[in-house]
Amino acid sequence: MRTTISLSKLRSQFVRDVEEISGEDLLACNQCGKCSAGCPVAAAMDLLPSQVIRMAQLGMTEVLQSRTVWICASCLTCVTRCPKGVDLPRLMEALREISLRSGASEIDLDRLPPDLVRELPQLAIVGGFRKYIR
């Protein structure tokens, strides 16, 4: 993937939005990779969690197209282990929020297996809809 890094991107509105919504300092991450090493859903991701942070640091809005932010289950394993205290789940939430606030919706009700829909616990429906639909 060819990309251009520029000062204007590093200080772009996108970077400010991510930092404001998450309340986190993107540059606190020094890319040690501990989050990616311990992530239980990394196998289903197209970008590793640490790569998502790197792209956000560099102002690469392409990161919003990544499946990773939607696969993150907010299990908080990474934030428990991060040596720099970066709250990665909050950064992931900020990236999801930016997409959701511009109209994205991540649950396709028609594609859910009907037998599953009948059986799902209520909190999964409430929580899932809050997290993936606006």
């Binding site: 239980p40 859903v41 289903a44 289950a73 907010s74 394993t77 991540e106 929580g127 899932g128 993936y132």
Partner: peptide
Amino acid sequence: STECCGSYLTVKDPTVSETL
């Protein structure tokens, strides 16, 4: 023992949470 079961992913990507 403390790994995630997939949580709400079960309403979005049931196959991912089933694998976990």
